[in-house]
Simulated assay, not measured.
Amino acid sequence: MRVFGVTVDDETRCVHYRTEVDVIAIKFACCGRYYPCHLCHAEDADHEAQTWPTDQWAEPAVLCGVCKGEMAVRDYLAATSCPGCGARFNERCAAHRHLYFG
């Protein structure tokens, strides 16, 4: 799976968010491309970001940078770690939820 933006390692960390637990990329609803964060999308894409509407939360739209497994939006929002490999997710990402998920 290709991840766009300025990543700093192969676990999808980027120049904006690169702590040990910053290991997800989000497929943006507007373009179908994975980006590590909203800032990477804003810098790279030629369009404004659109959020995932709730009726599409069953779509696989979150990528674990550790195991490269995809998960549905609703599964990601209910998790604190990857269901595939157990990698912990950054709990502070909840502050940005409105930027990705409607």
Rank of each mutant, 00 (worst) to 15 (best):
F101V: 09
W52K: 05
Y17A: 08
Y35N: 07
D44P: 00
E48A: 14
G84H: 14
V3N: 06
I24C: 15
D22C: 08
P60F: 09
D44V: 11
E70T: 12
Y76D: 10
D55K: 10
A87Q: 14
D46M: 09
F89A: 02
A94Y: 02
M1Q: 02
C30D: 13
T12S: 15
R33I: 00
H38E: 14
G5T: 02
V62H: 09
P60N: 15
F101Q: 06
N90S: 01
R13Q: 13
K68D: 04
C64G: 11
S81I: 00
C93F: 08
V73P: 05
L63S: 09
V21I: 01
G69I: 00
Q50M: 12
C82H: 11
Y76T: 07
A25G: 14
D44L: 02
V21P: 00
C37T: 06
A61W: 07
C37Y: 06
G84C: 08
A61H: 10
A25I: 09
H98Y: 09
K68N: 07
F101G: 08
H16F: 12
H41V: 06
V3W: 03
I24P: 14
R92D: 13
C64R: 09
T7P: 06
A72Y: 09
Y100K: 00
A58M: 03
C31N: 13
C31T: 10
A49S: 15
